[in-house]
Computed example of a mutant assay.
Amino acid sequence: MNRPQFVFRPNLRDPAQRRAWQLLQGQPAGERSAYLAACILKASDQAAAQKELRAMLREELGKIQVTAAPAEPKPKKAVPKSTLDFFSALQEDAPE
């Protein structure tokens, strides 16, 4: 029985493929196939976990109703006594 073969010919102009090639070259020659298999399985597991998490979040967020909180009225500032005194003085001096 012949083993299936896989040929990886990275495009070294592509930064992602160049980085993948560098990582693969960092593995011992006898362990590269196991490394590739582990990477593929990990990526597949992550994709499945992301899909499941998105579905769960979509379901939970669908149960939530978001409403805007009523705006709180601005507190009224007290008019300083000096300002009131100023206006009172203007009224006293005004002719009727």
Rank of each mutant, 00 (worst) to 15 (best):
residue 57 L to E: 08
residue 26 G to I: 07
residue 20 A to E: 12
residue 62 G to H: 02
residue 96 E to N: 08
residue 69 A to D: 13
residue 68 A to M: 04
residue 12 L to W: 07
residue 90 L to M: 03
residue 37 A to F: 13
residue 29 A to G: 10
residue 1 M to K: 07
residue 76 K to G: 02
residue 44 S to A: 11
residue 35 Y to N: 01
residue 46 Q to P: 11
residue 11 N to W: 06
residue 34 A to L: 15
residue 27 Q to T: 11
residue 80 P to D: 00
residue 69 A to T: 07
residue 73 P to F: 09
residue 85 D to I: 00
residue 84 L to N: 01
residue 20 A to R: 14
residue 82 S to Y: 01
residue 7 V to M: 05
residue 16 A to L: 09
residue 5 Q to H: 14
residue 36 L to A: 01
residue 91 Q to M: 02
residue 50 Q to L: 12
residue 74 K to D: 13
residue 8 F to I: 04
residue 25 Q to A: 09
residue 45 D to Y: 04
residue 50 Q to W: 08
residue 62 G to R: 03
residue 6 F to M: 15
residue 37 A to L: 07
residue 60 E to A: 08
residue 22 Q to K: 09
residue 46 Q to E: 11
residue 29 A to Y: 08
residue 28 P to Q: 13
residue 38 A to G: 11
residue 15 P to W: 08
residue 38 A to E: 15
residue 93 D to I: 11
residue 20 A to T: 09
residue 35 Y to S: 00
residue 47 A to T: 13
residue 55 A to Q: 07
residue 45 D to E: 14
residue 59 E to K: 12
residue 47 A to Q: 12
residue 15 P to C: 10
residue 71 A to C: 06
residue 38 A to V: 09
residue 5 Q to Y: 14
residue 55 A to E: 15
residue 15 P to S: 06
residue 91 Q to N: 02
residue 74 K to V: 12
residue 76 K to A: 07
residue 38 A to R: 15
residue 68 A to S: 15
residue 32 R to V: 04
residue 17 Q to M: 05
residue 6 F to G: 15
residue 61 L to Q: 10
residue 34 A to T: 03
residue 86 F to D: 00
residue 27 Q to S: 05
residue 60 E to P: 05
residue 61 L to M: 14
residue 80 P to H: 03
residue 24 L to G: 06
residue 72 E to K: 05
residue 64 I to W: 00
residue 46 Q to T: 05
residue 31 E to D: 03
residue 53 L to R: 07
residue 53 L to M: 12
residue 89 A to I: 00
residue 42 K to T: 07
residue 38 A to C: 10
residue 40 I to L: 08
residue 22 Q to L: 14
residue 40 I to E: 06
residue 78 A to W: 04
residue 37 A to C: 12
residue 28 P to K: 14
residue 36 L to F: 01
residue 34 A to D: 06
residue 14 D to G: 12
residue 8 F to M: 05
residue 47 A to D: 15
residue 59 E to T: 06
residue 95 P to Y: 01
residue 36 L to P: 01
residue 34 A to G: 06
residue 61 L to S: 03
residue 75 P to V: 11
residue 55 A to W: 05
residue 78 A to R: 05
residue 92 E to P: 00
residue 44 S to R: 15
residue 66 V to F: 09
residue 90 L to V: 01
residue 79 V to G: 02
residue 96 E to G: 03
residue 81 K to I: 03
residue 18 R to I: 05
residue 45 D to Q: 14
residue 9 R to A: 14
residue 50 Q to V: 11
residue 30 G to S: 09
residue 5 Q to W: 09
residue 83 T to I: 13
residue 89 A to S: 02
residue 84 L to Y: 01
residue 93 D to H: 09
residue 34 A to E: 14
residue 83 T to H: 08
residue 1 M to F: 12
residue 92 E to C: 05
residue 17 Q to D: 04
residue 24 L to T: 07
residue 61 L to W: 04
residue 13 R to Q: 13
residue 48 A to C: 13
residue 86 F to Y: 01
residue 55 A to S: 12
residue 16 A to M: 12
residue 62 G to N: 03
residue 83 T to K: 06
residue 16 A to F: 14
residue 88 S to F: 00
residue 27 Q to D: 09
residue 17 Q to A: 04
residue 84 L to M: 04
